[in-house]
C-alpha cells in the first residue's frame, strides 16, 4: 500500500493511501470527536462531528469518509470547527428528550461526555420534546427513541456483522426514526436474533438491556473489534 504525506495541524503526517483523514489524524495523536463512527463498522459521515477544514476545499469535510491525499493540508481544531461541533451536539440534545439525570446510561453515555468535553453548558435551540413511545416488547432489550441520535451504529452492526438486518431507518428529516423488522414492534420482529450487538454499540441510552435502572447500563463497544479480528489475532476469550 503506497504511503502519502499530508499536513495535519501544521504537523507532517504519513499514512497509507487507503486511510481516512480521521484515522490518520488519530494515529498522529490528534483527537477528533465522533458519534456515528465506530471502529469495525462502515463509516457513515452522519453525525458531522468529525468535520475538518481542508485547504483549497471551500466546504468542511467529514474526516471519517474523506480519504487522505498527498499534500493535503488539514486542520482539525479551529474556532469555527469547535463552534459547529458544539452546535451539532446542541441540536442533537434539542431534537429528542435527553434527560440525563434519569437515563439508564447516565455517566456512561458518549453524547453526555462529548457535550461536557465540548463545553455545551446550555442549548440555544428550543427543545422539540417529541412524543415518542418506548418499545419494550423485546424479551431482552428495550428501545427508547427519546435518547436516539440516529447514528445508525445499530443498523450497521445488525446488517454488517450479525447479518440479520432487523434494524433500519424510516422517514426523512425530523420524522426519521429507527425501526425494527420493517416497522413492527421489536418483540414481533422475526429477523431479530436477540444477539444484543446493537445494544452494545449504541452510544446513548436509546438501546438498553431490559430491566436496567437509572445509570446502571454500561456498554462494551470494544468487543466488536474482537468479533472481527479475534480469530486472526488468536484471541479466543474476549475481555475488556
Amino acid at each position: 500500500m503506497p504511503v502519502v504525506t499530508l499536513t495535519i495541524n501544521d504537523k507532517l503526517v504519513s499514512a497509507q493511501s487507503d486511510k481516512t483523514v480521521l484515522e490518520a489524524a488519530r494515529d498522529a495523536g490528534f483527537e477528533i470527536p465522533t458519534l456515528c463512527h465506530l471502529e469495525g463498522l462502515t463509516p457513515r459521515g452522519g453525525c458531522r462531528l468529525c468535520l475538518v477544514e481542508v485547504e483549497g476545499v471551500p466546504r468542511l469535510l467529514a474526516s471519517c469518509v474523506t480519504q487522505v491525499q498527498e499534500g493535503m493540508v488539514v486542520r482539525t481544531e479551529t474556532e469555527r470547527l469547535h463552534n459547529y461541533r458544539k452546535m451539532m451536539v446542541e441540536l442533537l440534545l434539542a431534537e429528542r428528550n435527553h434527560v440525563c439525570a434519569v437515563c439508564v446510561m447516565n455517566g456512561h453515555c458518549e453524547l453526555q461526555s462529548l457535550a461536557a468535553k465540548l463545553g455545551v453548558d446550555h442549548v440555544r435551540y428550543d427543545y422539540l420534546c417529541p412524543d415518542l413511545p418506548v418499545d419494550a416488547s423485546h424479551e431482552r432489550n428495550t428501545r427508547d427513541p427519546n435518547r436516539c441520535i440516529l447514528c445508525a451504529r445499530c443498523i450497521r452492526v445488525c446488517d454488517e456483522v450479525e447479518g440479520a438486518h432487523c434494524l433500519d431507518m424510516m422517514g426523512r428529516g425530523i420524522h426519521c426514526n429507527i425501526i425494527t423488522g420493517m416497522n413492527q414492534e421489536w418483540g414481533k420482529a422475526r429477523s431479530c436474533t436477540a444477539c444484543g450487538k446493537c445494544v452494545q454499540v449504541c452510544p446513548t441510552g436509546a438501546l438498553f438491556k431490559k430491566g436496567s435502572s437509572v445509570a446502571e447500563m454500561e456498554k462494551q463497544r470494544e468487543f466488536l473489534i474482537w468479533i472481527l479480528d479475534g480469530r486472526d489475532k488468536k484471541v479466543w476469550h474476549w475481555s475488556r
Binding site: 435527553h98 434527560v99 440525563c100 439525570a101 453548558d121 446550555h122 442549548v123 427543545y127
Partner: peptide
C-alpha cells in the same frame, strides 16, 4: 432539564 432563557443569559 435545561434552563430558561433568563437563566441562561445570567449564567
Amino acid at each position: 432539564e435545561g434552563f430558561s432563557a433568563f437563566t441562561q443569559q445570567a449564567l
